Amino acid sequence: MLWVTRPRLHLDRVASPWLVDRFVDADAKFDFVDEGQDVPADAIALTIPGAELGPRDADGSTFRKILRKYSITDPVLVKMADCVEAGMAFSLHEDLPPLSEDLLQHSATLAYFSEGMAVRYPDDHENLRQSFPFYDALYISMWANYGEGAPGFPEHPRKRIDQLQEARDWTAFFGNK
């Protein structure tokens, strides 16, 4: 399926395509339409004003709207939605939501990462391609703390990494992407 969003990607407009690609539509293709440009009839609009999966508003980020629309209840993805929303607030110098210190750190990291990727990869298709592995890694590390069935992990990073690698077949989990 074709999914479209606005160009000049930033946080929610990268996280949401990642969510779609990894958990909604394994055959997703992404393209971009300028504001005021018509969305192709065969496409699903993301973060476009007026769309069902529109931009952040009182109902939350596009990321959270996708979770609701597709009844995705994975607790890790719910925490990631919290981080996406807090990261957007951080970027816009808005009041941050009440989150734990670790989630606030993830949120600030997402904001900085997103800005850096937009500078490093101004081509939106390349930005998505290069950013998706970061979101895979974020999911994996957050799964260690919030995932269902995640084992308790030792403090030493190398041991945590080894146990995370053994805990799941991550390549298969992410559809060999």
Rank of each mutant, 00 (worst) to 15 (best):
R168E: 14
L2S: 01
D124Y: 03
K29P: 00
A86V: 13
N176V: 03
Q163S: 10
P98F: 00
F173N: 08
L164P: 09
K69I: 01
R64G: 00
S91G: 15
L103P: 05
D124I: 01
V78Q: 13
V78D: 13
V33M: 09
G116M: 10
G116T: 10
A26R: 14
A111H: 04
L110P: 01
Q130T: 07
V20S: 01
A41T: 03
D12F: 05
P55T: 01
I48Q: 00
A58E: 13
A89P: 11
D95S: 12
L99A: 05
Y139F: 14
R56K: 04
F134R: 07
R68S: 12
P98H: 03
L128Q: 08
H106A: 01
D38W: 03
S71G: 01
R168Y: 11
F90G: 04
L11Q: 03
F153L: 15
D82N: 15
P154C: 09
L96K: 03
S71Q: 09
R64H: 08
K65F: 06
E52T: 06
V4S: 08
S71D: 10
L92C: 07
P97D: 10
L103H: 06
V14D: 00
M80S: 03
G116S: 11
R168W: 13
R6V: 07
E35Y: 12
P49K: 02
Y139A: 02
L164G: 12
E166L: 15
D102Y: 06
A172H: 11
F113S: 05
K177L: 09
G36H: 09
H10N: 13
G116A: 11
L67I: 10
D59T: 14
E52Q: 08
S107M: 05
F174C: 14
D42N: 15
D82A: 13
